[in-house]
Amino acid sequence: MIRIENLCKKYGRFEAVKNLNLDVRDGTVFGFVGENGAGKTTTLSILATLLRPTSGRAFVGGEEVTRNPSAVRRQVGYMPDSFGVYDDLTVREYLAFYGTAYHVAESLIESRTRDLLHRVNLEDKVDAYVNTLSRGMQQRLGLARSLIHDPPVLILDEPASGLDPRSRIEMKDLIKGLRDQGKTVLISSHILPELAEMCDEIGVIQNGSLVACAAVEIVTARANGQRMLGFELLEGGRLLGERLRPNPLVTEVVVQGEQRVEVLFSGSERQQVELIRELSLAGYAIKGVSEVAGSLEELFLRLTESDTKSAQIAQPENALPASRVV
């Protein structure tokens, strides 16, 4: 449904997006995660036809965004990270205004307004002025606005930004519901655990490049019930890596040289002690073992480090095989 090929966007000498490749399958929720300034908003703005790329191509529903922007806009519901509201419009008038802008038949606007306000739980605010709504209510209204023309694709830039915990939960439920209805959703955030709760696939963007991509169950499986152990050695790191790879309690092995090996370990603390004792008796020169602290984002990037050094990953379904990463 969404395809990006070697996409670049430059502002003078600064490259906001660098040779980005991405495929988002029809009917899925794809999470685009990266720190502020990583290139998320620039990429989404290009897909929404608000920016022209410097080079490369982007397609939505088979339409190229620069060649046929009108056709793309009909297929896309875009919700920016911040959007203006109109002080003198009620919620009903606000949605009617955007329905008219999207050329929705006048006979359909009222029924769609009613249905959408029910979906986003704003039925009782239909005659309230938009500027009197809370931040969470305005975000939900923004989502309703992006759906007024019933697009098959939604592009949501930081939709949960600034929301309180209850509003975040409501927003996540809404996005899951849209997926269940067959919508394709591309959603950005700088919080990976937040995206993991609602997405089918996740991509990490850094400095304008897609550095990692995987199905969300692969990411969460490597974070839940497992921990990263760091082995410090006098020497023999590669040999230790070869010894650990067949171990059923070791999911991944990252050899960082002859004096450092990190493994993703799923055993108990007692099994960890037994493993260290076994390795010491086998003659490995282990100086110490420590648990590598870090967030889900850090774990995900650590596991995909070798992939990012070799090539940019373009296909989410193949980027992080469940059996091995390194």
Rank of each mutant, 00 (worst) to 15 (best):
Leu210Asn: 13
Glu15Leu: 12
Glu123Gln: 12
Met79His: 10
Asp115Ser: 15
Arg324Cys: 12
Arg140Trp: 10
Tyr129Thr: 14
Gly77Ala: 07
Val292Trp: 09
Asn318Thr: 15
Val250Met: 08
Asp81Tyr: 09
Arg25Lys: 11
Gly208Thr: 14
Ala38Asp: 09
Gly288Lys: 13
Leu122Ser: 10
Val216Ala: 14
Ala221Thr: 12
Glu262Gln: 06
Tyr129Val: 12
Asp88Leu: 15
Arg140Ile: 10
Glu305Gln: 11
Gln139His: 09
Asn207Tyr: 02
Thr132Ser: 09
Gly241Ala: 09
Glu262Gly: 15
Met1Ala: 06
Thr66Ile: 11
Ile202Asn: 01
Ala214Ser: 03
Arg52Met: 04
Leu195Ser: 11
Gly99Pro: 11
Tyr78Ser: 00
Gly208Glu: 03
Ile286Trp: 06
Leu133Pro: 11
Gly294Thr: 12
Leu44Trp: 10
Met1Asn: 14
Ala282Gln: 02
Asn6Leu: 05
Leu7Met: 00
Glu170Asn: 06
Gly39Pro: 12
Thr308Met: 12
Gln226Asp: 01
Asn21Cys: 13
Asp115Ala: 15
Pro152Cys: 06
Ser188His: 13
Arg270Asn: 13
Val216Met: 08
Asp88Arg: 11
Glu262Trp: 03
Leu117Phe: 10
Cys213Phe: 03
Glu5Trp: 02
Tyr11Arg: 00
Asp23Trp: 02
Val65Thr: 01
Glu93Ile: 03
Thr28Ala: 06
Asn318Ala: 15
Leu244Arg: 03
Glu64Gln: 07
Gln206Asn: 10
Thr251His: 07
Met137Arg: 15
Gly62Trp: 04
Asp200Glu: 06
Asn36Cys: 02
Asn131Glu: 14
Ser45Thr: 07
Leu320Thr: 10
Gln75Arg: 14
Ala48Trp: 02
Leu195Thr: 11
Ala285Ile: 05
Leu116Trp: 08
Lys309Cys: 06
Gln312Leu: 07
Thr41Asn: 08
Pro159Glu: 03
Val91Leu: 07
Ile218Met: 04
Asp81Pro: 00
Thr220Gln: 08
Val29Leu: 00
Arg145Gln: 10
Thr54His: 08
Phe231Asp: 03
Val292Ser: 14
Leu239Ile: 00
Leu279Thr: 02
Ile175Gln: 03
Leu44Lys: 01
Gln271Gly: 15
Thr184Cys: 06
Val72Thr: 10
Leu279His: 04
Phe14Ser: 01
Thr41Phe: 00
Gln206Trp: 04
Val17Cys: 10
Arg245Phe: 01
Val254Ser: 15
Gly142His: 15
Glu278Pro: 05
Ser167Phe: 01
Glu235Ala: 06
Ser55Arg: 14
Glu298Asp: 14
Ser70Leu: 03
